[in-house]
């Protein structure tokens, strides 16, 4: 197995999906701003999609199911981004900040 034949192997795609997922988790934990967290969530969804497409290409008997699933993930991600960003804009209007630690109105 050399570096140049990695594209023909399911493991390389699964490892890339896992690394994207890990990057997303890292960003989600360490980011302070809500928009940064949303960007990290997009990375997590990209990792999941890469996994679905890898299984679709290499192991699944029906090569349509994974592609349709990835298309639906894209649609859900678009809906999530629209709702999340409008919530962030509403929060900014209320608190004049998008820092996740400034939105503490209910804190006693």
């Amino acid at each position: 197995m050399s570096l140049l034949t990695l594209y023909n192997n399911i493991n390389s795609f699964l490892v890339i999906g896992a690394i994207l997922f890990g990057l997303g988790i890292y960003g989600m934990v360490t980011r302070r701003t809500l928009i940064g967290m949303l960007i990290a969530a997009e990375l997590i969804l990209a990792g999941a999609s890469v996994n679905f497409m890898a299984f679709n290409r290499f192991t699944s008997p029906d090569p349509v199911a994974g592609q349709v699933f990835t298309l639906f993930i894209m649609a859900i991600a678009a809906a999530e981004a629209a709702i999340g960003l409008s919530i962030i804009i509403a929060v900014y209007r209320q608190f004049k900040s998008i820092d996740a630690e400034d939105t503490v109105q209910l804190k006693g």
Binding site: L14, V15, G17, A18, I19, F21, G22, L23, I25, Y26, V29
Partner: peptide, 11 residues
């Protein structure tokens, strides 16, 4: 550490 654990475990 969390991210590395998850990514390494899945890999």
């Amino acid at each position: 550490a969390t991210a590395a654990l998850l990514a390494g475990g899945f890999s």
